[in-house]
Every structure is written in structure tokens, then in C-alpha cells.
Design a protein around this nucleic acid. Structure first.
Lengths: 333, 333
DNA sequence: CTGTTAGCGCTTTCAG
DNA sequence: CTGAAAGCGCTAACAG
């Protein structure tokens, strides 16, 4: 592997000059710069990551933190797609992305601690957001910067930079879509309101319903006990026979609902994951563009030092992907 | 951040001695070792990753390469779970895990190239396996070691170390399970035989069927065009009305089949992903333990230098997770 | 504009 | 068994 000394020698300059050329220091004359660049190409020179990091007291890596697995969560392709976006932007800027995961909270913490202490990594992307997250505490104690994908849970002091979908608007849009197709009696199905995402989507739904003078109806089902949830849903529909459509907080949930209720019931869900295509009829779903969320998160993370600590949140627009799970009631009137 | 000089000073020894103590060099006296260790603890000393790497001409990081996303593939929680296993073992050994992904083959290659050139990373784990993989070529050209999860595609020369499920046996086991429940006329459904995994599972199924004197029947359906696949399956069942059960090459496929065929048909599938629980009735499925596959892969990768190039492949045992998608025909006789 | 020098934090000969 | 010194590859004063 060629070093910068080799380059310098070949170009007939000193290592420091070669270094300056490498880093685009404007003080170098065009002529020398060219000589050096040519030499670099000839030797296929690539700077040594460790050496550069050591000399600059940097690490040029972004730590990406996955949530602890709770079975269901990992079937969401969201994470892998976000990772793609993060990687693309990071590689562009010559940053490495290091991953932190764990089968338990404890393991995750150990992993993050390792990156912090040993790797001196000081910028992270959190692929989830939860209140009272010990990982966040750890990050803060170590004065590491972090950006979250999703809405950051309220911390005592300041808000970290974040990138998110406007889930409130998404909830409204889903509801409007059903209304536009002639549905009036619409219910909202979710699994867990401690998830901010679901909370917001529900609120969006409620806003629109109230505004329309319709009664918002929501149902929580965890589906941990399938038979029981099945029964709940069935009872719910018996009590509310006027319902023609559901908004479900996620594709997977939509799929489950679909397996219980009559095909006459319309469904719209969120995330546009592969599940929505597997469903039959395939699910109309709101895409939130995880790759872009990842890209944006990386862009934020890369700016984390420019102590313009007031990095503005980024909102990535969502989009309704129309498939076949919503019947059009308007034409039939 | 405390450096090793600080430690040395506190312990009243030279940096070199401190270093030796740190690395467990046996030449150090027990007394000094203790002094140094105490000093390290007092100062919360953690060695600097970059400095250590530079001095040792190492990098202590494992590159993990994800497949290029083809929509469907990322909904498989396998990758994230494998990643968990990899991370756990790597962190244990003070290794970092760096991730390579890409929305396109080209982007993936660029990412791997970056790790190779800039990061000098020389050991990788491939989370997939395909023939004529340009990534593998790149790895080989750069003399990087790699281990694959799955069966490595045949390369010209030698076989890389790998870790895998015995998919042949898994295919046999699935079939035997159905036989044991009184099924005789069993079909196998798959999407793509260029995937070695599916090929093997199919072969296992065929072996058992032939051995039983039954006719192996397999059907390929991509489900790219849902209506068409639906029709194919229906026709297939009309032509083979004796069939009472299917082995499907994957949970997601099992779920799809389930949505088409009568609930009377029994199903067994592979991977035991969350999808198998979502299905109704829930799918009996063969778990391949992705976390363990990840752990094993990391263990192999960590041995990659000990030029015991003859690292033996690891086979991780699978297990049938019994749920409700297989009817027992024996009691009814 | 360029070269010399010292140093990032750690390891490792080489003496003793 | 331990210390002094040099070096991993790169960068940043400091001179010139």
C-alpha cells in the first residue's frame, strides 16, 4: 500500500505538501497540486483511515443504533432501507457506518458503550425513538451528538436534530382518501399508543373525522392472542355495523385485519412495505420513503459538529400508494 | 481522555510497560501488572482504537455485506437478526462492525471498495450468496477474507468458510413432519430455484417423497402477478385434487398460498419469521436461528487470519416450530 | 508557496 | 523484567 511519502517522493515534493494537496488546501500552487494528484493516481494511493483519524483526532464514522428486537419489529423492512440511505450518504463523505444492535437492552448498551469508549465515536443515528431511553442517556453523558429518525422523545433540555414523516398529516391524508372514496364510517385500528408514530397517525385521523362531523372510532388490538383479538374485532364490528373502512396504523396490522374481516371492508395502512403487496386484495398504503429518511438522517449527522446546534428538523413527504383495498363507494350512489 | 502515558505515569512505569500490561504480555511481573491495571481503572482508561490500529497495522473491524434490496428480501427479519449475532460476538472481541449496503449493485460495490481501500478492512461476512457475484470478485482481488452465511456459490478455486443450515435435512424434516401427520399427497411450492436455499429444501422434500414411494410434485410461482399465480395454483390443485398439504420454501410464500387455498390444506414452511405468526392459522415453520448463524459467522470471521485456511464449515441445527397450519389426519382414520 | 519538524496514541525492537 | 527510542501514516504549526 502506497503511503503519502511514496506519493511525495514520486511527485518530488515533501510529505506535507502532498498532504496539503490531498486535503485541498488552497495554499498549494496549481502546478504542484497536479503533480501530486498524478502521483496519487499512479500509485493508486488511498489515505489510511486509521492514520488520518489519529492525526486529526477524528473518527469519521457514524454509529447507527437499531432498536432492541421485539420479534415483530424486525420484519419491518424500514430499518434495512433506512440503513441503505444512511450508507449511501455516509460513503459519499468518506464516513464509515458502524452498527450497534443487541438482543437485549443491556447488550445494546454494551455495544454503544464500546463505540463510544473504544472507537471515540461521537455522532450517532437512532433508528427509533422511545421515552426514557437509557441509550440516549448514555449518549448524552458522553457528549455524543445524535440525530433520531422519528420524533424524539421529550428530553429535559433541548431537542436533538431529527428527521421524520409528518405522521399527523399522513393520518389526515389516509382519512381523506377514504372520505373521497365515499366512506363515512371509518375506524382506526392500532396496536400501541406509546409509539409516537401511531399516536400521531391516530390524531390525524381524529382531526379529520371530527371536522367532518363524523364520530372517530378507534380500536386497540395487540394480536398477541390471536383468537381473542379476532373476537374483539368481530364484536366491534357487530356493535358498529355501519363501518365500511379502517385506517390501520401499519401494513402488518392491516394484513391481520384483512384476514379477519369481510373483503367488503376497505383498508388503508401505512409504510407501503412488502406486506401490502402480499395482502389480497393488495393494500393501499402510505409510503414514508425510508431510504430518504436514512439519507436525511445521515446528512444531519454529518453536520453535527458545525455547532450550529440549531439544525432544523427535516420532514420527508409521504405518498399514498393506491392499490386495491379501498372500494370506491361514490360511483355506486 | 486518558492516554497510556497517563496510565504509565500514575503507575510509575514507562509507557512501554503499561502497553505490555495492557496487552497481557506474559513477560510483565505480577506486581507491575497490578499497578498498571489499577491505574487504568482509576483513569477509566480505554485504548484508542485508531492509534492501536495504526500501530498494529490492523483495523479490528468486520465488514458486513447486505444483499442489494429486491423489495421482498428486506422484509425478511433474517438479516437484522443475523446482524445481532454478528455484533454480539464482534463486540466481545473488541471488533467493530461496519456495514455495506446499496440500493444498486453499483452502490454496493462502491461501498465495499471504500471499506477495502480506505478502511483497509480485510475480513467480511456476506449475508447472502449468489453465483458470479461481483462483490466476491472484488473481495478476492483485494485478498480480503470472507465468510458467507449460506452455501457459497462455487468459485473456481477454493471454498470460503461458511455457516449454514442443513437445508436438505430441513426439507426432509418438513416432509417427514407432514407424513407423520398422515399426509401422503404433498406438494412443494417455491419461487426461485436459482436460490440455493430453495433448491436444497426442494431436494430434501423430493428425497423423502421418493423414498416413500410417493410422487414429488413441485410448483414454481413468483407471485409477481398475483392474479396469474392465483390461477396457476388453483389449476394445479384441480389437476391434483389428492393433495392435502404443501411445503413452501418460505413463510411469506406460505402466507400467500394460505390466502388462496382452502383452510383444509395443510402447510409447513421455513424461517419461522414473524409472518408465520401473523398467518391464520399460524404457520408451522422451521426455525433456522438467524442470530446463531450470525454469531457463528462472526466467530469464523474472527479466525480468518489464523491461516488455518481450512476453517471447517459450521452447520446450525434447525427446529420445527409447531403451530396450527398442519392438520393431523392420523386420528381421523 | 513549500519543507522541516514534531506529534496524534500505541507498540515494539533493542538494550540493559 | 523494564525503559528508551523509533515508527505506524498522516497532519499542522513554524520557518523560510
Amino acid at each position: 500500500m502506497a503511503t503519502i511519502r511514496d506519493v511525495a517522493r514520486l511527485a518530488g515534493v515533501s510529505p506535507s505538501t502532498a498532504s496539503r494537496a490531498l486535503r485541498g488546501n488552497p495554499v498549494i500552487s496549481a502546478k504542484t497540486r497536479q503533480k501530486v494528484e498524478r502521483a496519487m493516481q499512479q500509485l493508486h494511493y488511498v489515505p489510511n483511515f486509521s492514520a488520518q483519524n489519529l492525526a486529526n483526532n477524528e473518527n469519521n464514522t457514524i454509529g447507527v443504533i437499531l432498536p432492541v428486537d421485539h420479534h415483530e419489529i424486525f420484519t419491518n423492512p424500514f430499518f434495512l432501507q433506512a440503513l441503505q440511505g444512511i450508507n449511501a450518504k455516509s460513503t459519499e463523505q468518506n464516513f464509515m457506518v458502524a452498527l450497534a444492535t443487541g438482543v437485549s437492552q443491556q447488550q445494546l448498551l454494551a455495544n454503544v458503550e464500546f463505540m463510544l469508549a473504544r472507537g471515540r465515536i461521537d455522532r450517532f443515528i437512532l433508528l427509533y425513538s422511545q421515552i426514557n431511553d437509557p441509550v440516549v442517556t448514555l449518549l448524552q453523558q458522553n457528549h455524543a451528538g445524535y440525530v433520531v429518525i422519528g420524533k424524539p422523545a421529550a428530553t429535559d433540555g433541548t431537542m436533538p436534530p431529527y428527521i421524520d414523516t409528518d405522521n399527523l398529516a399522513a393520518g389526515r391524508d389516509a382519512t381523506h382518501f377514504l372520505l373521497a372514496h365515499g366512506h363515512r364510517h371509518i375506524a382506526f385500528l392500532y396496536t400501541d399508543l406509546t409509539k409516537i408514530v401511531q399516536q400521531e397517525r391516530l390524531t390525524g385521523y381524529q382531526q379529520v373525522m371530527i371536522q367532518q362531523g363524523e364520530l372517530p372510532l378507534s380500536l386497540q388490538e395487540s394480536f398477541i392472542d390471536y383468537a381473542q383479538s379476532n373476537q374483539h374485532v368481530t364484536e366491534f364490528l357487530q356493535q358498529n355495523p355501519q363501518i365500511t373502512a379502517f385506517v390501520t396504523s401499519d401494513d402488518l396490522l392491516g394484513l391481520r385485519l384483512q384476514q379477519i374481516v369481510s373483503k367488503q371492508i376497505s383498508l388503508i395502512s401505512f409504510n407501503n412495505s412488502f406486506t401490502s403487496q402480499v395482502a389480497h386484495p393488495s393494500l393501499t398504503s402510505i409510503d414514508v420513503f425510508p431510504v430518504r429518511l436514512g439519507e436525511g438522517a445521515a446528512e444531519l449527522a454529518l453536520q453535527l459538529d458545525q455547532n450550529t446546534a440549531d439544525l432544523q428538523p427535516i420532514i420527508v413527504p409521504h405518498k399514498i400508494i393506491v392499490r386495491h383495498s379501498v372500494r370506491d363507494l361514490t360511483t355506486k350512489k
